[in-house]
Design a protein around this nucleic acid. Structure first.
Length: 486
RNA sequence: GGCGGCGUAGCCAAGUGGUCUAAGGCACCGAUCUGCAAAAUCGGCAUCGGCGGUUCAAAUCCGCUCGCCGCCUCCA
């Protein structure tokens, strides 16, 4: 039985979805800037949870929204002098590029807030009818005092929150804790017609409306970063349960820890962030995944280059062990069931990815050992690959940089080649119609000749020059192979 | 101030009463392999922030203490 930590109860619980299909909703992005490693962590985690559920035999319907209208988008668009829609579309596109690069599976449904205005208006109206919402000067607010169990997710009471609230001047709320369902628009702002005049959805309502529409009154899993617990998710509960009259809105609340920069949380507002695009320039998707999965998802994770470097080395280790080699011999193989059980036991325990990863590393070592002994390891490699896939690792078996989408620098290798031939006092072959790949192949071949002639110094020079250019050579019984070094 | 969490080897990080003289990754040291390397393999490398309790038994429970972080306002 899978155990899952539920923020609501504060403890691990048996995972019990309502039916065969797990209904999963994860809060998406507000696209006004590039996504950063904090987003990467969160979406990798939920990607893994989704993949694991499927591995465990569940069907999963995964919905993740895009909040393409909100104050931040308007503010940023105004600052840049472009339409809000253009800004949102640009960063939505860039967000999905990042997700693809990180091998995060696409949601089954991606609702956009601006497409769901009718559903949102229907919900706001319903909340007013039931006495939970009230209109004030073109905006509609949610009457928090009317929900006796308000605060149950974040474990705080309305009274304890009273201290330290500030009331924005000009707000028309009955209670300072009331939050906006529908926000009247100022002139010039994007607006939709509504029974209360032109306006736009409040921040929390769109998630309620979309999850309700696409997944029904009760979700099995609702996920997001810990920073969303209050007020966002608390308010979602209040709205949704008040509107549908069905409890619970969510059976299992899952929240991931924050990525920290040094001592502080990485966040857009603090501006202390590394974007996913920046990270991908230096590290492979596998490395970023190891970074995210190397500690438990509920713990905070501190970014540092050292950690990413270490993760990259680890990723390389996994890649190396699944790299194919022709072996006639079949060998005794590994205890597939034992590894599967270790992996499953770890993941069943509230998605203990560090433990699951450790299993993969142990398997990798055993495969390497068997291979060193001359045994065929294809079966074990297949197991490693399939378990790694549950954790979402692309683990491209060879030439991983192709996956990262970073091409080899042809100019650099042309220069390297010329330098080497010059050093050897030979005339360089024509590089017409040569790409970096074949240039390197030629140099490797050249070095082989030199080795055969036992001209070690010269052979080593070739290797050293290639190394400088970022290419590592390995002499194996099957011949010399090269790979891009980071 | 309220709520929540953390402190395990040089670094990252599992483990939450006995199988822990503590998993895994990175780094480092030694060995094997190699023309030399690289990769790989083998071996080495911690007593769990501090103090005091509970217990036959604690990293794991309780108390105190020191240090750190998140949320309470937009945020994955």
């Amino acid at each position: 039985m899978m155990q899952v930590f539920n923020t609501m109860s504060g403890k691990k619980e048996d995972f019990k979805p309502q039916g065969d299909e797990v209904k999963m909703y994860v809060c998406g992005v507000t696209p006004y800037d590039d996504a950063h490693l904090g987003h990467a962590m969160s979406y990798i985690i939920f990607d893994v949870i989704r993949r694991y559920l499927k591995y465990r035999g569940f069907k999963v319907k995964y919905v993740q929204n895009v909040t393409d209208i909100d104050d931040k988008i308007i503010a940023r668009a105004n600052k840049l002098g472009i339409p809000q829609r253009e800004l949102a579309e640009k960063f939505t596109r860039r967000y999905f590029e990042d997700m693809r690069a990180l091998n995060i599976e696409e949601p089954d449904v991606t609702p956009y807030a601006t497409d769901e205005v009718p559903k949102i208006i229907e919900m706001v109206r319903g909340l007013i009818d039931k006495g939970y919402g009230y209109e004030a000067q073109g905006s509609v607010y949610f009457r928090v005092r009317k929900v006796p169990d308000y605060g149950k997710l974040s474990h705080r009471s309305l009274d304890s929150m009273k201290a330290g609230i500030r009331i924005e001047p000009g707000e028309e709320k009955e209670d300072p804790m009331d939050f906006v369902l529908w926000k009247a628009s100022k002139p010039g702002e994007p607006a939709w017609d509504s029974p209360w005049g032109p306006g736009r959805p409040g921040w929390h309502i769109e998630c309620s409306a979309m999850s309700l529409k696409y997944l029904g009154n009760t979700l099995d899993i609702h996920g997001g970063g810990q920073d969303l617990i209050f007020p966002h998710h608390e308010n979602e509960i209040a709205q949704s349960e008040s509107f549908t009259g069905v409890k619970p809105f969510v059976r299992h609340w899952l929240h991931n820890g924050m990525v920290q920069m040094g001592a502080e949380k990485m966040s857009k507002s603090l501006g202390n962030l590394i974007t996913i695009k920046q990270a991908l320039q230096n590290y492979s998707p596998d490395a970023i995944r190891i970074f995210a999965l190397g500690s438990h998802y509920r713990s905070p994770l501190t970014y540092s280059e050292e950690i990413l470097e270490a993760a990259e080395k680890g990723a390389e280790r996994l890649r190396q062990s699944i790299r194919s080699e022709e072996r006639a011999e079949v060998g005794v193989g590994v205890d597939i069931e034992a590894y599967k059980k270790r992996f499953t036991d770890a993941m069943d325990d509230d998605f203990n990815t560090p433990k699951a990863l450790a299993t993969l590393f142990d398997l990798a070592r055993e495969l390497n050992r068997l291979r060193d002994m001359g045994q065929g390891v294809a079966q074990g490699q297949f197991l490693l690959l399939s378990l790694a896939n549950v954790l979402g690792f692309p683990l491209a078996p060879w030439r991983p940089w192709e996956i990262a989408g970073i091409p080899l620098d042809e100019e650099l290798f042309a220069q390297t080649s010329a330098m080497i031939y010059q050093e050897l006092g030979r005339s360089a072959p024509s590089l017409e119609n040569q790409n970096a790949d074949s240039t390197i192949d030629n140099l490797v071949e050249l070095r082989q000749e030199l080795r055969k002639a036992k001209r070690w110094k010269q052979a080593d020079m070739v290797r050293a020059k290639l190394d400088e250019a970022g290419i590592a050579l390995e002499d194996t019984p099957q011949g010399t192979v090269w790979r891009r070094r980071r």
